[in-house]
Amino acid sequence: MTALAHGGVGRRIAYYRSVVRPKMTQKQLAAAACVALGTIRKIERGERGVTDATLEAIADALGVDPARLRTDRGSAHTRVHDALPALSDAIAAYDGPDDGPVRPLHDLRTAVVEAARWRLAAQYTRIARQLPDLLMELARAYQTAPAVERAEIAGLLVRAYRSADAVAYKFGARDLSARLIELMRWAAPEAADPLLTASVAYVRTETFFAARAHGPGLRALEMALAAAPLPRTAMEIAVRGALHMRAAVIAGRAHDVSAAVSHLSEAGVLANQVPEGVYYGTAFGPDSLRIHEVSVAVSLGDDHTARALDVAGEWKPPADLPAERRSGFYIELARAQLWSGLADDSFESLKVARRIAPQHTREHPWVREDAATLRRLKRADSETLTSFAEWCAAT
């Protein structure tokens, strides 16, 4: 991968790091960008170049477009869309991949884990660039592996398809997202892991959200809950709890108050039994439950919106939660604030979401809708709001 020249890039990174609100230390930037601290130090001192992937990760962590760090670069939005055809080509050949190299199984595991980390950090440009080749390699591995390894490779395929789906779904390629989910459903039984199958049911809910088929989506999740292993181990508890959280949200979208409250309550019981963490690719625990309380309240709307404001008034998502989930909290809170007549607070929440996960925030349809509404209301500084609205393509 081509490295950018030394010098100006490092100075720009140091500048934006020093003016981010709140200001970031080099250590904080390294953690947020999933880049080694020593690498950050060398880049800022101009002692080494910056690869495309590293620059994009740093820009995401700083909440700026990579073009601001290096003026000859296009936007992350454009690069992701340009990469989608390659992703589509890769999955079209899932059962007949072309010839090519296959790394050892432990290297494939590492690559899949890294892609999942990018997904949780909302670093979609990295996924878009790396996943086409990885998916093709995993397909080759699955076709050529000895029987003893096929189940594990099938599981790796499911996890890699999920990371690719995050890009397709967030960037509006809904047909591609649906194809990826179907491939997840194809590969999951081959992995012979009931918890992995349950995690696929969690992701599959995207297709129901996209189609606004909330009733069928709720029924599909309830069927998945019936088939999921009983909650004995921490993993089993967390996977079941995540399904209940998802069911609560889609029940809210269906305006089924009883089901929403019931599933949220079940999720709460389970969340109190495990520490916050990422289980089978999904964050679950007490903090994730609070975020879903806000999500359910916003989904139900009307008199329930006040609950979202109550949660936000006494709690904020901790910094160690995945960036995608934290930004989602502020996006949903912004909508609740807008509906409650708190336009200025709503805009502040959108800006926080942008600082946490710029790509996730920019591609979220609610952000565009709410930014457009705020712009019409003219309740925030017009220049700043106009700039934000143009950034997220609000109309």
Score class of each variant (00 low, 15 high):
61 A>K: 03
344 D>L: 15
169 Y>I: 08
319 A>L: 08
164 A>T: 00
89 D>L: 15
170 K>R: 07
344 D>G: 14
286 P>S: 03
292 H>V: 11
80 V>H: 02
101 P>T: 13
278 V>E: 01
274 V>C: 02
203 V>E: 10
370 D>P: 01
155 G>Q: 06
343 A>R: 06
315 W>G: 02
130 Q>S: 14
69 L>H: 04
45 R>F: 10
153 I>N: 05
140 R>S: 05
190 E>F: 13
350 L>M: 11
176 L>D: 05
122 A>L: 07
104 P>Q: 13
361 T>K: 04
157 L>I: 11
388 F>I: 07
138 L>E: 01
221 L>S: 03
313 G>A: 12
258 S>Y: 13
175 D>W: 07
308 A>N: 05
357 A>V: 06
3 A>M: 12
204 R>D: 14
31 A>Q: 09
352 V>E: 10
380 A>D: 12
155 G>E: 07
130 Q>T: 12
126 R>C: 10
365 P>I: 00
271 A>P: 03
251 A>L: 03
135 L>F: 10
113 V>L: 05
231 P>W: 06
287 D>V: 06
353 A>M: 09
389 A>F: 01
37 L>Y: 10
240 R>P: 07
156 L>R: 01
321 L>G: 05
38 G>M: 10
54 T>Q: 09
280 Y>H: 10
79 R>Q: 09
49 G>M: 07
394 A>N: 04
127 I>K: 06
298 V>W: 04
295 S>D: 12
161 Y>E: 05
333 L>S: 00
51 T>W: 03
374 L>S: 00
117 R>N: 04
289 L>P: 04
390 E>D: 15
198 A>H: 05
352 V>G: 03
143 Q>A: 14
376 R>V: 00
22 P>T: 12
319 A>G: 12
44 E>Q: 09
393 A>H: 14
296 V>S: 04
66 P>V: 06
245 M>C: 15
259 A>N: 12
287 D>C: 13
248 A>L: 07
331 I>G: 06
